[in-house]
Simulated assay, not measured.
Amino acid sequence: MTLPAASVQLYTLVSQFAADPQGSLDKLAAIGLRNVEAFAFVDRPQEIRAALDAAGLVSPTGHAPLLSDELWTPDGSIPTPAPEVVFEAAATIGIQTVIDPFVAPERWLTADGVADIAERLNRAADIGATFGLSVGYHNHAQEFVADFDGVSAYERFVSLTDERVELELDLFWALAGGQDVPALVERLGSRLVALHVKDGIVPAGNPWAPGAPSFGTDSLDQRHAGTGDVPLAAALRANGNVKYAVIEYDNPPGDVFEDIAASYAFLRDGGFVA
């Protein structure tokens, strides 16, 4: 079994990276990381590429909206550029797979909504291929609220997308969605190319279920990998197709670089990454 490479989602250090891209990447390189997952990269691809090159890092995957007119996050909305603009920026940086990070909860509640998401991502895959790029999807927990004939909206979506569409499973959010996480990791098979390695105390109920209280990322009790509720070790061993183990905190518990280093140590010392 080939071990995945360690990476880190730059959303984890969104404020630090916005203030000092080069210094932030240099600190990640000093921790021992060689890969990052870019976020909010479309408006400044040349700057990000230069900073990555100077730090000796690469960004094989990156998050950008492909499936929504406007990308909602718990901390505000992000305008959605045309897919061609996204892919051109990604190619400049050296990203190989552009991953949509969030589709609004209400779109996952009906079979037609799920089919529309899948169709849009299949079309994005066609456009991305003209740039030599792949596309993928990153889950939260809203994809696991509805089910259709005993199949979750998420897995129905997987069945409707082209085989070339890649999957990045956020382990924390899959658990928050009530999933048997290692079993889901195994079922996704060769479609699964990346895992978001995220730990903490998982909310008691799915926070995106209809009627659930609204929340922000600052309400999440997230912890260093291996110290929370998420069965990370079992999940990381459940599928030999995974290429990237991507460290992420939505709400880092302390100094963000120390938090990243702690999760990287879990991956490295546990033998979960190459």
Rank of each mutant, 00 (worst) to 15 (best):
F172H: 00
L3W: 00
Y154I: 03
F266C: 00
V230C: 03
V202Q: 01
D69H: 12
E168Y: 03
P231S: 11
G94F: 08
V114W: 05
Q179D: 07
D20H: 13
V42N: 05
A90P: 08
A183Y: 05
A5V: 05
G226E: 11
G76M: 11
S68A: 14
Y244D: 01
A204L: 12
P74Q: 08
G271N: 02
D100S: 14
R223L: 14
D180R: 03
Y249G: 00
L121D: 06
L67G: 04
D116W: 05
V145A: 04
V42I: 15
F17R: 15
V185Q: 06
A204K: 13
D112G: 09
L133P: 02
V193W: 02
A265E: 09
Y244G: 00
Q22T: 14
S68E: 15
A274D: 14
G216C: 00
D229I: 03
A19Y: 11
E47H: 05
W72F: 09
A29K: 15
P45G: 06
G150F: 11
Y137I: 13
H140R: 06
A129Q: 12
D147P: 00
V114L: 08
W208R: 03
A29S: 15
Q222N: 07
A115H: 13
D250L: 03
D255F: 07
I99A: 01
S68Q: 13
W173I: 01
G132N: 14
I99F: 04
H138P: 04
Q46C: 00
G132V: 13
